[in-house]
């Protein structure tokens, strides 16, 4: 399975806070958001909760989206990362603070089966992310966004609030650290980085 999605998230349609505008943004990005969460959890209910959290947060922030500050893809990934980190920091209080909609309550049996299939299909990506666990957080978050989620370095920089030079330096350091541990993994990370650069050039 390719670890780099063909196109991580929307680059075209900006988020809009009105119902029709956000519906179009939702339709365009639902699959990518679902991919983001199923690359990080093996639980269908958690995947549903995270998906709902991400889109609710995006809806709330849509009115303030400024295309001059970054592509919709990076904007949405920034929101997705925040929703994910809030969820996995783990306290009940925090989950209450960020959750406006319980996504798992919207699931039926067929949805759960479809999510389980999806989670199975993303196993390789999760395994890749697990191999990054030995890295420090700054290196891991950059490498995950580029190698696991398929963002370009520029998009990863926008999502993380870093400049592109910093992202490239961290990618280099991450690959070097992985190479020291597992040469094969580092080689794959290098391949995905090359792909990402190609995507960035042709976009």
């Amino acid at each position: 399975m390719p670890l780099i999605p063909q196109r991580p998230m929307s680059r075209g349609a900006p988020p809009r806070p009105d119902a029709a505008g956000f519906a179009a943004f939702y339709e365009e990005n639902f699959d990518a958001v679902l991919g983001f969460v199923t690359r990080r959890t093996t639980c269908p209910q958690v995947a549903a909760d995270l998906t709902a959290d991400i889109f609710v947060a995006a809806l709330e922030a849509a009115g303030r989206y400024d295309p001059g500050r970054g592509a919709p893809a990076a904007w949405l990934y920034g929101i997705a990362r925040n929703a994910l980190s809030s969820h996995y920091r783990g306290s009940v209080r925090e989950r209450h603070a960020v959750a406006r909609l319980n996504g798992h309550r919207l699931l039926d049996e067929e949805d759960i089966a479809a999510l389980e299939e999806r989670i199975d299909a993303e196993r390789a990506a999760r395994e890749l992310a697990e191999r990054h666990s030995s890295l420090s957080e700054p290196l891991r978050e950059v490498l995950d966004l580029v190698a696991v989620d398929g963002l370009t370095p520029r998009e990863a920089a926008q999502a993380l609030g870093l400049n592109q030079a910093t992202v490239r330096v961290r990618l280099h350091r991450a690959k070097r650290a992985l190479r020291a541990e597992r040469p094969a993994v580092a080689e794959r990370a290098e391949q995905t980085d090359s792909t990402a650069r190609t995507l960035e050039v042709v976009s």
């Binding site: 939702y26 699959d31 998906t51 889109f55 909609l101 699931l107 479809a114 999510l115 999806r118």
Partner: peptide, 13 residues
């Protein structure tokens, strides 16, 4: 790839 269509529609609503 499989899609939880019911969930997708309900979340959209």
């Amino acid at each position: 790839m499989s899609t939880p269509t019911g969930f997708k529609q309900r979340l959209e609503s």
